[in-house]
Design a protein around this nucleic acid. Structure first.
Length: 571
DNA sequence: GCCGTTTTCGGCCCGACTGTTTTCAGTCG
């Protein structure tokens, strides 16, 4: 696991405490910028620090780089320790409550001695919050509700779940005749791994009617806000959904604005400013005159930029590329010709091989690889050599049967053992079309051990793909401690492809890692790792993540025709 | 604290909504 999240938390806490002290309005903003920058870094911040290149990171200057260095070297930051002494509150915890910010934290600390979630909940339940200057009955109820949300751990939702919820609301709203246009914006449109809340934008002839219908949608558990152009509700699942009504000729500007990210928009805005223009959610203006806003393309074009695909809008070089007209032609779902990692009921899958093949055929794939687990993974009923040899024969027969137009590829997801060896003999591996190797055990190995282990596995001349390279489960399990740079170098040397596992909880590699991998010339396989028919649909999430990693079809081997694919993985 | 086609100082996105107000501060995205 990288130190990135940890460092981001330290910077966030400093920013919050500075804001709570209230001495400087802009210093905290600089810290928050640093937080976003570090949190979305593709590389380990520690590696960057060792290169002495922290100030190359956007938003990190002399001050923040010193703070980061101090933390990495000593595990503490003097400034933070001082701040905590002056304002002894659990700022991160309190700030995570919806509706509570630095000003409220300061108020309840000064007046009531509240320092954490527990004491805030107690004072709120005792009714002591209402009556404080600026705080009334309703705010008190809102805070109690907000604490429940935090306790339930519902701050962020997986993209797949958010998209499902969005679809439900979208379908319901589209039935209203007064709605002329509707788009899902925000981080869902940017296809981030997890979503804070849903942003829905509409153009409607009768905004009031839309708002009235929206707040009564199925699954709404509470209404946070309801105005003529903006309403906000919380679903039973905890997900917050914002709906905004825009004028028709501002829809593009609104979409651009509410798609974000903040950092991308700040840059776009400053480009507009330098051209003597002003950009807000209603349009791009020269003085009082609107010069663009109906669609996004017009806004970007007027600013001298190519239209930027939402997945790239993170201020990670996309603006410079768009200025030069050099944005990559990103991978699309239609480019995918097959899936190279899937399971059946031979190991821990839920469907038979025939059922999986029928489902894959329905996706018009040109090839499809069956890759069940191997023997060390006993919990998943992994196959030993004799079962695997039988499976190989079976697939030969299935190919010969002519029942499926696509080519069925013989594969396995082979376990990497503690010492980096594989749990299937080379003489059997050599009979497979696609050998994927993965870590499923000893996930707490030290960085050195894990790196050695994986690299040794990649040195085996029968290995084609490294499956879910960091092993993370979003929100559940961190990445292994592993030196990815060394893994990439080894893979490059031994001609091994990196997997982008499309499972919504995995999305492994992440976008930053993907970008680093292709920069080194590595190829990627976008695979579903499906354990049942329905999971073959997860390919879309892999494609989203690939796009966030700037991947083109050339970078992804399962966009190739069968012949080229076999050539590409040949050792 | 960061940054630079407004470059070593002086700005820093900005509008909507709520609650508690009587004109606005706080939060959010």
């Amino acid at each position: 696991m990288t130190k990135n999240a940890e460092v981001a938390r330290v910077l966030k806490e400093i920013g919050l405490l500075l804001e709570i002290e209230g001495k400087d309005k802009f210093k905290p903003l600089a810290y928050y910028r640093g937080v976003r920058s570090i949190a979305s870094l593709g590389e380990d911040v520690e590696t960057i620090a060792k290169r002495d290149a922290l100030t190359d990171i956007p938003g990190i200057g002399k001050g923040l780089s010193e703070v980061i260095k101090q933390y990495l070297e000593t595990g503490e930051v003097e400034l933070l320790t001082e701040l905590r002494t002056r304002v002894p509150v659990k700022a991160l915890e309190l700030d995570s409550i919806p509706g509570v910010g630095p000003k409220t934290i300061k108020l309840v600390y000064d007046k009531l001695g509240v320092t954490d979630l527990e004491s805030l909940e107690r004072t709120a339940n005792e009714g002591k919050l209402s009556g404080l200057p600026g705080l009334g009955e309703k705010t008190q109820i809102q805070i109690i509700e907000g604490i429940k949300v935090v306790r339930a751990g519902l701050e962020r939702t997986l993209l797949a779940d958010a998209m499902l919820a969005a679809e439900g609301i979208e379908n319901a709203l589209r039935k209203l005749k007064v709605i002329k246009k509707l788009e899902i914006a925000g981080s869902t449109r940017r296809r981030r791994e997890t979503i804070g809340d849903l942003d829905i934008l509409v153009v409607a002839t009768d905004p009031e009617a839309v708002m009235a219908a929206f707040v009564k949608s199925d699954g709404v558990s509470s209404i946070q806000a309801q105005g003529p152009t903006k309403s906000s509700v919380r679903l039973g699942s905890g997900l917050q959904v914002d709906l905004r009504v825009l004028p028709d000729d501002s829809f593009g500007a609104g979409l651009q604005y509410f798609t974000g990210s903040v950092d991308h928009n700040v840059r776009i805005r400053s480009i507009a400013q330098k051209m003597g223009l002003r950009l807000n959610e209603y349009g791009l203006f020269k003085g009082e005159k609107k010069v663009a806003g109906e669609d996004e393309e017009g806004i970007y074009k007027t600013l001298g930029l190519q239209w930027v695909p939402p997945e790239l809008r993170e201020d990670k070089g996309e603006i410079e590329a768009a200025q030069r007209g050099e944005l990559p032609a990103l991978l699309s779902k239609d480019d995918i010709r097959g899936d190279l990692h899937s399971h059946t009921d031979q190991s821990d899958g839920k469907n038979t091989i025939e059922e999986m093949l029928d489902a894959a055929q329905a996706l018009n794939y040109e090839y499809y690889c069956v890759s069940d687990h191997t023997q060390s993974l006993t919990i998943a009923n992994g196959m030993d050599e004799s079962r695997l040899l039988k499976r190989i024969e079976e697939i030969d027969e299935l190919n010969a049967s002519g029942r499926w137009k696509m080519r069925i590829l013989k594969g396995a997801e082979v376990d990497i053992l503690a010492d980096g060896g594989l749990d299937i003999e080379d003489c059997v591996l050599s009979q497979l079309d696609v050998v994927t190797v993965s870590i499923h055990s000893r996930m707490k190995d030290t960085k050195g051990t894990m790196t050695e282990r994986v690299c040794r596995a990649l040195e085996n001349s029968h290995v084609h793909i490294l499956g879910h390279p960091t092993g993370r489960l979003i929100g559940k399990r961190s990445e292994f401690e592993i030196d990815l740079e060394r893994v990439f170098e080894t893979a490059q040397k031994h001609h091994v492809v990196m997997e982008l596992n499309a499972y919504p909880q995995r999305l492994d590699l992440n976008a930053g890692n993907l970008r680093a991998a292709i920069k080194m010339g590595l190829k990627i396989a976008v695979n579903t790792d499906a354990h049942r028919i329905s999971e073959l649909e997860n390919m879309q999430f892999g494609v989203f993540q690939a796009r966030r990693g700037w991947l083109t079809s050339n970078d992804v081997i399962n966009t190739y025709h069968l012949k080229e694919l076999m050539k590409a993985i040949k050792k």
